[in-house]
Nucleic acid binder design. Structure first.
Length: 152
DNA sequence: GCCAACGTTGGC
DNA sequence: GCCAACGTTGGC
């Protein structure tokens, strides 16, 4: 089992929106970055654990945990003319963008802020610590455990 | 295939 | 809203 971190803007879709979604499950749509796409398409597997991270908001940080409940399939929004995520270069034969489905698991007892993550020297690998603008990134078991410990 | 211009992300 | 960092585009 692998660990991941997914960024989301809570004004658009928050951990609470996930908790309140039908079956507490959502397609993680709209990822339009190739590195993130490759993780989704190639590496994220059923049962993997995902930290939900709120960005571009007042309280920036990791807020909860979700579980991967469906592996990659083409992102339907790339074919949807009315969507902001529409991509004219994507075809049914050659989809460019993919989604996985995630299901709500839990909120952390308290938010683990970006500031505290950056200040924790035991967190060594996490791309967030560098100048990562990546919206989907792997998390090592060590870094995962550190963040969980910081939430208690 | 280089690289300048441009657009986007995301913390503050 | 600013702006630094970085990804993408497109001319050559």
């Amino acid at each position: 089992m692998s660990y991941w971190l997914f960024k989301t803007e809570p004004d658009a879709f928050s951990i609470d929106d996930l908790k309140n979604a039908p079956n507490q499950t959502t397609l993680w749509e709209g990822v339009r970055n190739y590195q993130a796409r490759n993780f989704i398409r190639d590496d994220i597997k059923l049962g993997d654990q995902v930290m939900i991270y709120h960005s571009s908001c007042k309280l920036v940080g990791v807020v909860g945990i979700a579980t991967v409940t469906c592996e990659a399939y083409p992102d339907p929004t790339q074919f949807d003319l009315s969507s902001d995520y529409y991509d004219a270069k994507a075809t049914n034969d050659k989809p460019r963008w993919f989604v996985v489905e995630v299901t709500y698991k839990s909120h952390l007892n308290k938010l683990v802020s970006l500031k505290n993550i950056k200040a924790n020297n035991a967190i060594t690998e996490l791309a967030l610590k560098k100048a990562g603008r990546l919206s989907v990134m792997p998390v090592t078991k060590n870094d995962w455990n550190e963040i969980i410990a910081m939430s208690n």
